[in-house]
């Protein structure tokens, strides 16, 4: 490679449309087009709002997961952690409701944010200080959080106090100028995530650690601290998702958030973040979360697929989307 080539490379990259980065959005477009052809109700404002609103959970948690995965980590505990945080939040709100009235809601939300961040911190510290694979650590904490929520609910459900229910409901069902609150919260979290990832020193360190931890270490990056922080961000995002989750059904059950970790990881990877780390796309993750929800929605709206085969078609579409991604990206 000549020095002239090196000099021109960044410039040409700047002008060229990066098809690889656009892949998740193109895939989303194709699936939306498909949905419109299959059922005319698909494009109705109600349906679109429903789908976008309900994808908020996976998208918000996905923003955190993008950080963890970009550092080369993996968090399997997020689904259970969500259930645990939801449980703690409901208990806190119910306990505070008699003395504080509706003020129990913001305080409960604050409790959730603290608990979520601490859960993430715990994951991160065990991984970095204990030097254990993230897969194993979070597999362990996944079981722990799931067991704790089952214990807290006695296997049944833990419902939010009736006096708080109506005051809290709008956080999921309400909207600001026609945009549902969960969508606004998702946008804020994604913007924050994108800012941290692309515009701060910490963000650059995240991808540096993910692409090559040793090189990052030699260039003076505190790898353990960067990784731990990524898990804290993940925990915080889980708590934000929990805050949007509770007003929807108003209860925590042992099946809350079950298998969400797989959906989140799928959304992140469809979005173009490398599972081995080093490359992160916040907006791709949001698109990935939308893709998953739209596919599920189209499956119900179409009458072509037998109810027994829905999961198979969903799986196939995800694989096709990934293959398309592979062939459109330069490498």
């Amino acid at each position: 490679m000549s020095s002239a080539e090196i000099a021109t490379l960044p410039e040409s990259e700047g002008f060229k449309i990066r098809w690889g980065d656009l892949a998740p959005f193109i895939a989303l477009g194709v699936i939306i087009l498909l949905g419109t052809m299959i059922n005319s109700n698909f494009m109705s404002a109600n349906n679109i709002l429903n789908v976008i609103t309900r994808s908020a959970f996976i998208a918000i948690i996905g923003v955190g997961a993008t950080f963890v995965i970009a550092t080369g980590g993996l968090d399997l505990s997020i689904g259970s952690m969500l259930a645990f945080v939801v449980g703690i939040m409901v208990m806190a709100m119910n306990a505070l409701a008699p003395s504080l009235g509706p003020w129990a809601i913001p305080i409960g939300a604050l409790v959730a944010l603290v608990v979520g961040s601490l859960c993430g911190l715990m994951n991160g510290l065990i991984i970095t200080v204990g030097r254990i694979e993230p897969f194993i650590v979070t597999l362990g904490t996944m079981g722990i959080f799931r067991a704790l929520i089952t214990y807290m609910t006695d296997g049944g459900s833990l419902s939010i106090d009736r006096s708080l229910r109506n005051a809290y409901r709008p956080v999921y069902f309400g909207d600001f100028l026609g945009v549902p609150y969960p969508v606004i919260i998702t946008l804020v979290i994604a913007l924050l995530g994108a800012f941290i990832l692309y515009r701060t020193k910490y963000g650059r360190r995240v991808t540096a650690v993910g692409s090559n931890a040793d090189v990052a270490r030699f260039s003076g990056v505190h790898v353990g601290r960067v990784r731990t922080m990524a898990f804290v961000i993940q925990g915080f995002c889980v708590a934000v998702a929990a805050i949007c989750y509770v007003p929807r059904l108003g209860a925590a059950t042992p099946t809350t958030g079950q298998l969400w970790e797989l959906q989140v990881i799928t959304a992140v990877v469809i979005g173009g973040t490398l599972l081995r780390g080093g490359k992160a796309h916040i907006w791709g993750t949001v698109a990935g979360a939308l893709i998953l929800e739209v596919i599920a929605n189209v499956m119900v709206l179409s009458d072509m697929v037998s109810e027994y085969l829905v999961a198979a078609v969903q799986g196939a579409i995800i694989i096709i989307a990934m293959l398309a991604h592979r062939f459109t990206s330069p490498r």
Binding site: N50, R54, R248, L249, L301
Partner: peptide, 21 residues
Amino acid sequence: IQYANWNQDEAFTLMQDYLGK
């Protein structure tokens, strides 16, 4: 008729889809 896996969340989203359809 569709599966919602005896799960509140899945039943909620499935019902939303039914209502849209």
